[in-house]
Design a binder for these strands. Structure first.
Lengths: 337, 337
DNA sequence: TTGAAAGCGCTAACAA
DNA sequence: TTGTTAGCGCTTTCAA
């Protein structure tokens, strides 16, 4: 295997200098057409492929951007990344991927690794464990763009793309009310996270706006899973004051709720059920599940746009933006009384 | 924003040379403990972060590997990448991500881009469009590891990780037969792809092994989707010689089959239905769907292992391996007569 | 145990 | 329009 061709080989072949070759390859206007043509032909002949490492080392720009997410296995993140990669690829950027697996330690390590790889910036969604965000400060200090999405730290002055979780909760409750449900419960997580907290707040606001009573005992704090959904539904249905609709913290929990309700012969939409996330399965279960869609593609798109805007500015942190994505109510059988 | 510290800054600070600093940072044994300690302390003090670009340029190794897949939106690929990243991260490698979106042109461009970024190798799954694989030959010529998974080109002498599709088809049919079904149809794609072809072959082999007749009119060639499933089921149920079980080309198609069967009041397991892929929703639909699992995590793990083996060898193409992943029958209600 | 210096492949300021 | 040359940050051979 012979060594790969460099611009030196092209230069030697044509009896010109490397700077001329470099300028030709980069389409400088100060190069004669003849030379340019000769250079490209020779490049092709020698099977020349540029070594971006070298130019990056020189220019300080790698056209590579780091993306840190909790896990690729979560469909939401996979779709966001799909979308980010599409947009950034078209702008000449590559994606260096790092999964934190919901561990701060990994996340810190991710930032370090990506920075050593000299990425031009980072797009990230924080791990659930993350509280101290000083590792992200490094980016800011280096004046490199940082865009946070979904799980963000509001105290950081960086661009963010988030869902309007308050509105998501509000819309879920409002939809149920409009369908005629009057006694609406909420099965959510005990986890301290503004996302879930804001949904509950939105839910409460909707109740108030529609002159419905807020019943704290109708808000079940547990986990988010099929099992937790079953548990929550069971507990709620045993109440004297039985709710006629349940909002579940996510679609898996909603699925658990539905399963339990079917067992109790209270299959939705008899008791209304709505979830959050619009997981793939939600459209296919019986009864199929109404849910709040988070528009993952749009989140990814906005992240990429925000990033491009920052990278294009010589002072990225002067063009910080906070994009809020609107939740979408997806109406299906489980709430169609 | 002051410039980032380099080994020169450390050297100057300590009145030693960069070579000593370099050796200290890389834990060479020929360095005195005192010096080493001083270097690390100064590095920390100056907030030193190594520039991997520079060392890569020198060494020719980037510890970055390219991964090309059709789309992150397909859950199978997302899980495979999850797994690849986990393993390779622990071996000090980073993942450069590229989506082909089922376009050869993009795929070719991906190889080019990744090669210019000087990746140490590539792990890829081909686009459905890809027929000519000469773009992958480039890797081989450069003696850089290439691992292909799922959608592979057998004529290429590279490491591969594939599902045993023949066996997948065989197991699906065998399972149905063991459940007591005797007249088994297949709804699959017309697409020319060994994956789907081999499943049909396995299906036929199972029928033969169990003295069942192969009926070509019971093999419906169309697309793979909910709609195609509905269409196939409808067509099959109108037959004089009505099948009592249907194998669907993937879980979406199976879902369509089930929907149509329910409409016809022939809900599984009355008519047995089994799919391929074990999509998330399959466990949650009613009746829940028996399916053949493709072990995406394992596929990713094996890709990473195969890659590590090749990269560790000074002649990667002497340790080429062909790993075949066993399909798993997931038994659920839709085939439990 | 440490230093001096060349070089990885490319860019760009300066000169011609 | 093209050439000369220094340098990006690091590694490594050779010498001391």
């Amino acid at each position: 295997m012979k060594k790969k061709a460099t611009i030196y080989d092209i230069a030697r072949e044509l009896n010109i200098t490397v700077s001329t070759v470099s300028r030709a390859l980069n389409n400088f206007s100060t190069i004669s057409e003849a030379t340019k043509k000769a250079v490209f032909e020779t490049a092709k002949k020698l099977n020349y492929s540029p070594n971006r490492l070298a130019s990056s080392l020189k220019s300080g720009k790698t056209y590579t951007i780091g993306v840190i997410i909790p896990s690729m296995e979560v469909h939401f993140f996979a779709v966001v990344i799909h979308s980010i990669e599409q947009v950034l690829k078209n702008n000449g950027y590559r994606i260096l991927l790092y999964q934190s697996n919901e561990s701060v330690e990994n996340e810190i390590n991710g930032v370090k690794t990506l920075l050593e790889a000299q990425v031009d910036g980072i797009i990230a969604s924080m791990s659930l464990e993350t509280e101290d965000t000083s590792h992200f400060q490094t980016l800011i200090k280096q004046n490199k763009p940082l865009v946070l999405f979904d799980r963000v730290d509001k105290s950081l002055n960086v661009s963010t793309v988030t869902l309007d979780d308050f509105k998501a909760g509000y819309l879920a409750a409002q939809h149920l009310i409009q369908q005629g449900y009057k006694n609406i419960a909420f099965v959510t997580t005990i986890h301290q996270n503004s996302i879930f907290g804001n949904r509950v707040k939105g839910y409460k606001a909707a109740l108030i706006d529609h002159q419905l009573e807020i019943k704290e005992h109708h808000i079940i704090y547990g986990g988010l899973s099929i099992k937790d959904g079953r548990y929550g539904a069971d507990k709620l249905m045993r109440e004297q004051d039985r709710p006629d609709a349940i909002i579940a913290g996510d679609d898996y929990t909603a699925l658990g709720v539905i399963k339990k309700l079917k067992e109790l012969d209270l299959s939705p939409p008899q008791i209304g059920v709505i979830g959050f996330a619009n997981e793939t399965f939600s459209a296919f279960i019986t009864p199929n599940l109404s849910t709040i869609d988070q528009q993952a593609s749009k989140v990814g798109y906005e992240c990429a746009q925000g990033f491009m805007k920052m990278i294009a500015s010589e002072n990225p942190y002067e063009v910080v933006e906070h994009t809020v994505i609107e939740p979408l109510v997806i109406v299906r059988q489980s709430t169609s009384k």
